[in-house]
Design a protein around this nucleic acid. Structure first.
Length: 114
DNA sequence: TCGTTGACTATTT
DNA sequence: GAAATAGCCAACG
């Protein structure tokens, strides 16, 4: 199992309307993948014919928008391949409410193990 | 193997 | 609280 699949597997378990931070995911992975490594895994998810393994994971299979940074905000607004506000909109459609500073109430939306 | 580059984080100025 | 610094690790040329 590659380092990507571990990230994707966890992200896919996030229920609708819940979010997870990079640091939390990195702690869930036994190999202690850094938060930056998590971000890199999601970055490879943007396109299918990228460095994507033969796992079939795509941006449609994995709810990448439910992954946010430690400040409870989105980190894709400067990303070229992703339109600004895309992640925010996807989350709002799932019931996640953003504050004026483009962050969410982390303690209310952070997904914890069932 | 090496240097650079990030969808990162925590600490220090 | 913003900016700089340091630690972090996988991908890439």
């Amino acid at each position: 199992m590659s380092i990507y699949e571990k990230v994707y597997k966890i992200v896919r378990q996030i229920p609708k309307g819940r979010v997870l931070t990079y640091s939390v995911i990195s702690h869930m992975i036994d190999t202690r993948l850094s938060a930056q490594g998590v971000g890199w895994a999601l970055n490879a998810l943007k396109s299918v014919d990228q460095t994507q393994p033969e796992t079939g994971y795509t941006s449609e299979n994995v709810p990448w928008h439910r992954v946010i940074n430690s400040r409870a905000g989105i980190s894709t607004h400067k990303q070229k391949s992703i339109p600004p506000g895309r992640q925010k909109k996807l989350l709002e459609e799932e019931g996640v409410v953003f504050q004026e500073d483009e962050t969410i109430i982390l303690k209310d939306y952070l997904w914890r193990d069932i």
